[in-house]
């Protein structure tokens, strides 16, 4: 009985420690300024179709200080790779250093996939996301809503939790979202460091979000 009680107390203690650590990590975002030390390594989560178009418009506006750029695309996505290569080529033509890679991971959620099977495929995607993020060690994860971004952000958070590296999570909700957040948005609202929305209705509903008007 005493052993069981000790085990239970130990477990509770660990859980509390993890939660406290999580809160500390999440709140430390504003103090983290990777740009002061030099180039900022970005992990860019491109989704399919519209998501990729939007995120590339954001990437276009970022200066050369954001390098290298690692683009993550879902393994079932055929179109995004061409779009990214075309975009990076145009960036190179304007004189910026073309340091980028394209990485593929399993898609965590197909359009219209059910909630319960999404959970399983997201866990599966997490198995790929963790080693990838641990290897690339980005300063920032930038994403705008495809399901794939949840496991990648979780992996980034884990790096911070373990004290290996504070990875900043930057989320930009798609322009398509006027009155309600996407599923990814609802999850990442709580753990991201900078959460952008593009319509004032959403800013009113989610006060922690950042509203700078339309940015794509």
């Amino acid at each position: 009985m005493a052993v069981l009680l000790a085990l239970l107390t130990g477990l509770c203690f660990t859980v509390i420690c993890v939660i406290v650590r999580l809160l500390i990590v999440i709140r430390s975002g504003s103090k983290c300024k990777p740009g002061e030390k030099g180039p900022v390594c970005v992990l860019v989560v491109a989704g399919s179709g519209g998501h990729t178009t939007e995120i590339l418009r954001l990437m276009e506006s970022l200066s050369q200080s954001y390098s290298p750029r690692h683009y993550i695309i879902a393994d079932t996505d055929k179109m995004s790779e061409d779009k990214i290569r075309t975009f990076e080529k145009s960036k190179k033509d304007t004189g910026s250093k073309g340091q980028f890679t394209i990485q593929r991971i399993p898609r965590s959620r197909e359009v219209r996939q059910s909630w319960s099977s999404s959970v399983i495929s997201t866990l599966n995607a997490l198995l790929y996301a963790v080693p990838l993020v641990f290897r690339l060690r980005p300063d920032v994860v930038l994403c705008n809503g495809p399901g794939t971004c949840v496991p990648l952000c979780a992996a980034g958070l884990l790096l911070g939790l373990l004290g290996l590296k504070r990875v900043l999570l930057v989320y930009v909700e798609s322009i398509c979202r006027v009155e309600s957040l996407s599923l990814s948005g609802k999850i990442l609202y709580h753990i991201s460091d900078y959460f952008f929305v593009q319509w004032s209705t959403l800013k009113d509903k989610y006060p922690k979000s950042i509203y700078l008007g339309r940015i794509v």
Partner: peptide, 19 residues
């Protein structure tokens, strides 16, 4: 009219301390 990705870039530069 198109949106302003530059506003996003300026915000992020300031937030991340990019010179």
């Amino acid at each position: 009219l198109p949106g302003h990705p530059k506003h996003f870039a300026n915000f992020l530069d300031r937030a991340l301390g990019v010179q």
